[in-house]
């Protein structure tokens, strides 16, 4: 399906957000995720089903003022 990950269109074969993170080789307990502007908690990613056109955000810590 076609989805947008961090602003970039991608074609993926993943049915859940957890599958997507695994397929794209994201790992670590420091990631935060959202689908279409809604936070998806770490423990809910395996149940968060993806649909065509979804906008996914995957954020991690960085320096800030």
């Amino acid at each position: 399906m076609n989805i947008i990950v961090n602003g970039e269109r991608q074609v993926v074969h993943a049915s859940t957000l957890a599958d997507l993170l695994s397929a794209l080789e994201y790992e670590g307990d420091w990631l935060a995720t959202a689908i279409n502007g809604d936070l998806v908690h770490r423990e809910d990613r395996a149940d968060a089903r993806l649909e065509d056109g979804d906008r996914i955000e995957i954020l991690s810590p960085m320096q800030g003022g």
Binding site: V5, N6, G7, L24, E25, Y26, G28, W30, L31, A32, E57, I58, L59, S60, P61, M62, Q63, G64, G65
Partner: peptide, 22 residues
């Protein structure tokens, strides 16, 4: 200390390295 969040690149580990430092 103040910190921020940004888009993590696929497979990237930079966020994790910074978080550990903090």
């Amino acid at each position: 200390v103040t910190v921020s969040l940004r888009r993590e690149t696929s497979g990237g580990k930079s966020g994790g390295v910074f978080f550990e430092l903090i």
